[in-house]
Simulated assay, not measured.
Amino acid sequence: MSWRQATREEIYRYYDEDFPSYRDELPSFITAKGPKQYALAFREPHPVRKEGVPDKDFIRRDTWQTNTSGERTTAAFQEFDDILEFIRHPARNDPLGRSNFALADPDLLDKPDPCPDAVYYALDHWERPWVLLVDIDAKDIARNRAADTVSEDIDDQNNDAFLNAAGILDAAPEGYPYAFEDIERAIEYGFEVRDVFEDDFNAQETMVVYSGQGVHVYLLDSDPAHRYDAKSREVLNDLLQDTYKIPIDPVVTADRRRVARLPYSLHADVCSIVTPIESPNFDVQSATPEVIQK
């Protein structure tokens, strides 16, 4: 088993044929108007309407316009079908409309409509407390593993030579900055975090999501005392890292402006569906969508 990037045609087919069937499976808090933003990443930068502004390979779009007091006034998306159309054809359905900073109309360019390599939603929310998510990335696990095994004196542990010395770049999936064993360990860590949530925090509602290159672990209970505010999240990060020795990305948990991959969206770099999972024995190959298996 190896991996590859999805082609432009496969991405379009996925959001046209496969993704709509998952809309009813989305967590209840992921709606057209709930998350404060949706965001898209593009493989190739796309121009905006205003000349002199750099092309964009990542855009965020607010779900609501607000007044000077921060109160909601006008919704950018009325229903989830509007989100889907924005994903399928971002420039033609940009909520910024005719703003100078909207994506340029592809009909006026020698470029096609931009194609989303990744789809995200904001963890900050209009209708519920700030969503608590812990991110575990196989790339971090691979670098930690390399640091434990490589005896050579390599100053920069962020370069490919370091991973190559540990044999990681040659291991399946070849050419990626991790091996499948790092993905599997990330998933195992994810369920360890879920156990911490349920045992230490008495959490009633949790979710583990295979992200394509690791896992996202959600604690979805609303804590009535402090709703897992910034200070609470710092304590949680310290607990997971220092006590349980789980290699998380603490910034994702603590930064209110963070976005997360939309469940059931396509991680186009690895041709995998971002999938909620129930077991650490999850087979990542099962996350390859039908439109790519054909």
Results as ranks from 00 to 15, higher is better:
residue 7 T to F: 06
residue 288 T to H: 13
residue 265 S to A: 07
residue 203 A to P: 01
residue 161 A to G: 15
residue 206 T to D: 01
residue 92 R to M: 09
residue 255 D to R: 00
residue 82 D to E: 01
residue 221 D to K: 14
residue 11 I to G: 05
residue 274 V to E: 01
residue 166 A to H: 13
residue 230 A to N: 04
residue 154 I to Y: 11
residue 29 F to C: 01
residue 263 P to Y: 13
residue 246 I to G: 06
residue 262 L to C: 01
residue 70 G to C: 01
residue 201 F to S: 02
residue 80 F to W: 04
residue 101 F to I: 13
residue 217 V to D: 05
residue 18 D to A: 09
residue 23 R to W: 07
residue 102 A to K: 11
residue 7 T to P: 05
residue 269 D to R: 14
residue 137 D to A: 08
residue 225 A to K: 12
residue 122 A to Q: 11
residue 232 S to C: 07
residue 12 Y to K: 14
residue 211 S to C: 02
residue 39 A to D: 04
residue 81 D to T: 14
residue 125 H to K: 13
residue 259 V to R: 10
residue 71 E to I: 04
residue 177 P to K: 14
residue 105 D to W: 14
residue 279 S to Y: 03
residue 90 P to W: 03
residue 286 S to Y: 09
residue 80 F to V: 03
residue 62 D to S: 14
residue 190 G to A: 02
residue 64 W to V: 08
residue 189 Y to P: 03
residue 230 A to C: 05
residue 274 V to H: 02
residue 261 R to F: 09
residue 1 M to K: 02
residue 222 S to Q: 08
residue 283 D to H: 10
residue 272 S to D: 08
residue 221 D to G: 12
residue 184 E to P: 09
residue 137 D to G: 11
residue 291 V to I: 06
residue 62 D to L: 11
residue 111 K to R: 15
residue 63 T to R: 13
residue 91 A to D: 02
residue 285 Q to R: 12
residue 90 P to A: 01
residue 11 I to S: 05
residue 103 L to W: 03
residue 80 F to N: 05
residue 289 P to R: 04
residue 281 N to Y: 05
residue 28 S to C: 07
residue 122 A to R: 12
residue 44 E to V: 14
residue 84 L to R: 14
residue 111 K to Y: 15
residue 179 A to V: 12
residue 40 L to F: 04
residue 143 R to H: 10
residue 261 R to V: 08
residue 139 K to E: 15
residue 224 P to R: 00
residue 256 R to G: 08
residue 225 A to N: 09
residue 38 Y to K: 05
residue 62 D to N: 15
